[in-house]
């Protein structure tokens, strides 16, 4: 319990440091966002108009204040969840990020589930067929898997399953014709809450390609870990005992082997979540999937700095929180850790 609390407290300095980096990155932009914004806004503006609009933006952004003052304002806004409004249109950043974040979480979680499924199955098969061609092929496949560039893989999926075979949709999250109005932003939850089961299947169909694209780059790690963990555990006494008790092979596998392999799997999931989240930023672009990645990248292109800042903070915070959850999961999965004092 004490360990869990300490872990939660350790989040505060990390979050503070992350926010500071995002804050500085946004202010160290050459020529200041105001200049580029003024320049981008109107190509035909005269020098005078240009200076005026630049000044207006500087004041709007609070860039005329000294840096420490900007920083304090920034921290205050952060605590009150006030991230400002988009430069274009009047949408608040909180609203835009809040709408996009569930989509990204759905994508990442779906990818993770697919990766676990592929990884555990191939890892167990590789361990079971140790020293055979099957084992070797799976290991080579795993090596290929974790170097795959997401966007190229995604494009191949689009061409094969979307264009040539025409099985799966290649763009977006849900067809507009369905008239989806988010309550929580999570489609599955909303389908239950709003009693609209017809949302589920189109949603799944839209998720398959992007989630699998992401999952493939991660599955190889899980395959490796599962294979090693299973091989290691297979020789242990408790597995021999379980077999001697007359348990079937699949029962031994489920109750004894995989349970003990769970810890390294969780470790990899934690380590890989960042890569997955990062990958989703690019994968979303391939599929025009309306998540944080799409929002962030479009904002970078449009130099919409409040959104860049808000989206970056959201992704970074999500990442930190997942790492915390992973650490807490350790405590659940490995009772030995609970006794050790920090």
């Amino acid at each position: 319990m004490k360990r869990a609390l300490l872990r939660l407290l350790a989040v505060i300095p990390v979050l503070l440091a992350l926010s500071t980096i995002v804050f500085l990155a946004m202010r160290w932009i050459p020529g200041s966002p105001a200049t580029s914004l003024a320049a981008g806004g109107n190509m035909n503006a005269t020098a005078e108009e240009f200076t005026q609009s630049e000044e207006r933006i500087r004041v709007a952004l609070g860039l005329d204040q000294p840096l420490w003052k900007q920083y304090l304002t920034f921290l205050g806004d952060l605590v009150t969840l006030d991230f400002g409004t988009s430069f274009y249109g009047s949408n608040s950043v909180l609203k835009l990020v809040g709408e996009a974040l569930p989509a990204t979480i759905e994508l990442t979680v779906a990818a993770m589930l697919i990766a676990i499924l592929i990884g555990v199955v191939t890892g167990v098969i590789a361990a079971w067929k140790k020293d055979t061609v099957v084992d070797g092929a799976i290991r080579v496949g795993a090596t290929v898997s974790f170097s795959l560039p997401w966007f190229a893989l995604g494009i191949l999926g689009v061409v094969v399953f979307g264009v040539v075979l025409g099985w799966l949709p290649i763009i977006g999250r849900l067809p507009n014709s369905l008239g989806y109005h988010p309550t929580t932003g999570f489609v599955l939850l909303d389908a239950i809450l709003q009693n609209r089961p017809e949302l589920v299947w189109p949603w799944v169909k839209h998720l398959i390609l992007p989630a699998t694209t992401l999952a493939l780059s991660m599955a190889g790690f899980i395959t490796r870990i599962v294979r090693t963990a299973v091989l290691e555990v297979l020789g242990d006494d408790f597995v021999r005992t379980a077999r001697m008790k007359g348990l079937s092979e699949s029962a031994v596998l489920r109750h004894h082997v995989l349970r003990n392999a769970a810890l390294p799997i969780v470790t990899v999931l934690g380590l890989q979540f960042g890569a997955l989240l990062g990958g989703s930023l690019i994968t979303e672009m391939v599929f025009a999937y309306p998540g944080v990645g799409n929002l962030l990248v479009s904002a970078v292109h449009q130099r919409d700095y409040p959104i860049v800042q808000g989206a970056a903070l959201a992704v970074a915070f999500l990442f930190v929180m997942v790492n915390v959850v992973v650490d807490l999961l350790y405590l659940v999965l490995d009772p030995r850790l609970r006794k050790v004092t920090a």
């Binding site: 990390v14 440091a17 992350l18 980096i21 960042g274 890569a275 989240l277 990062g278 990958g279 930023l281 690019i282 970056a312 992704v315 970074a316 990442f319 930190v320």
Partner: peptide
């Protein structure tokens, strides 16, 4: 540095 996803 590792507290950020690389891509971000």
């Amino acid at each position: 540095a590792v507290a950020f996803p690389s891509i971000l």
